[in-house]
Structure formats: structure tokens, C-alpha cells
Design a binder for these strands. Sequence first.
DNA 1: TGACATATATAGGACTCCGATATATAATGT
DNA 2: ACATTATATATCGGAGTCCTATATATGTCA
Lengths: 115, 115
Amino acid sequence: MELDKGLISGSMALLVMKLLEDQDLYGYQMIEELRRRSDDTFHLRAGTLYPLLHGLEEKGSVTAYEQTAENGKNRRYYHLTKQGRGVLAEKEAAWNTYARAVGQVLKGGACLAGA
Amino acid sequence: MELDKGLISGSMALLVMKLLEDQDLYGYQMIEELRRRSDDTFHLRAGTLYPLLHGLEEKGSVTAYEQTAENGKNRRYYHLTKQGRGVLAEKEAAWNTYARAVGQVLKGGACLAGA
DNA sequence: TGACATATATAGGACTCCGATATATAATGT
DNA sequence: ACATTATATATCGGAGTCCTATATATGTCA
């Protein structure tokens, strides 16, 4: 099945923030973690992720800090702020509303005359 | 709750085609019908719908025909073609896949170590 | 040494959707 | 009679989102 990328447009921020709910992660980690959690459905691209993270940082939803991993390499970790958690909660609620509404339309409302 | 329009980006074509599955409709009717079926969640704009319909027509997913209603007014009705029904089926399957995957991520995969 | 994975980043472009605007007719209000 | 609102179709410009392509640097494996 062809991947219709437009379908989930706008929900990348939601998904990324959700990943950061439990723990701080660096960019590359998020790409892999999202792929794993979605059973290989979401293939978040680096060219999408990094500008997205920079945007979230500007808005104050995440903060970034450099940290040296065990192997001595610098990784840029991202942390979900308290404000970011509020945004995440809103986005989750919005997603649920929309997903429910789409489901309702797809279920086939039929009976146009009922209006 | 603020309407995060980006969330359902790309699914407008799916929703509109779904409306045409049961019966031919004209543009304005689709706007109202979608609003009704989604319990007032989706407010499809005229500036979104008409270009979308023209695009679907170009691709051969719908055909259009003028028809005079009982009140003597000309309405531009749209009909979902056989090819369009195929596209609709694919889009529905894609939506279900993505909605399921988002749900899985939101459920909280946690356990990063499992990777 | 050359290919590939890890890791971060930007630029340019495609696509989707919205707001504004235009046009025309019908219904409704005052 | 005149104004407003609803019906109905249509286009344009712009904002936002995401992708591809590209750049850079390191590490690993053959």
C-alpha cells in the first residue's frame, strides 16, 4: 500500500512530543523509536525532524542540552517542558476528536434525508 | 479546544469521496453533509472543496454533470467513478493503518530498552 | 579503502488547506 | 423597498507541513 504521507500531516509534532513524555531523547533516537513503536508504519525523516525540534524549542515546548554519551560522543538531547506537556495533552485530545469524527464519517452516516 | 487543522491534513479527499460513495452530491451539499456526519467537527471550506473536486475530476476519480433541481436551479453534481471507488478503498485502508499506528504510539510504547 | 550506519542540519520544493474575494440568485427580515 | 443572510460555485495568495536532496562529521565493517 502506497504511503499517503499527507494523511497524518500535522501529527508529527504530536508523535515526537509523545516520545519525549517518558524520557529525554536525541534526534536520531526519536526516528528509530517512532518506527519501532508504530510497528514500522512511521518513517520520520531527518529533514522533517530537526526543523520540527527547532520549532518546538523556539515555542518553549522542549529544551535542548548537549550531553556526552558513554562512548564519548556528544548528543543533543531534548526534554519536554511543563508547557510542552500541556501542548501535548491538547494535541492528544485534538487527535482523539478528529480520529473519532473520521471514523464516524467512514462508518457511513448515510441517510442524507435525516438532516 | 483549538482546532488544529493540520492534524487531518490530507484526509479531506478521503472524506469527500466517502460522502459520494452512496449518492451523487453537489458541492455545497457535501459541506453540510460532512458537518452533519462528523457531529460538527469538520468544517470543510468552499475554498478547499472546489479545487479538491476539480483535482479529483482531472484524476478521473469523479465525474461532474449539471442537473436542474426541482426548483429549476442548476446544480453541479459529482459522481464517484469505479476508479474513484478503488482510490477510496485504498485511502480508507491507509487511514486505518495510520490511525492504528498513532493510537499505538499514544498508548505509550514505553520500554525503549526493548529495541 | 570504500560502503554503510550514526548523527545533525539547511535549502528548495510539493502539497494541502484556509482566508479573502468575486459573482449570482433566493429567502428572510425590517 | 432595501438590507442582510443563506445558497452555490469559483479562484488567488499565502501559511504550514513534510519530503528530497544535500552537506558535514564520525564510526564500523568488509
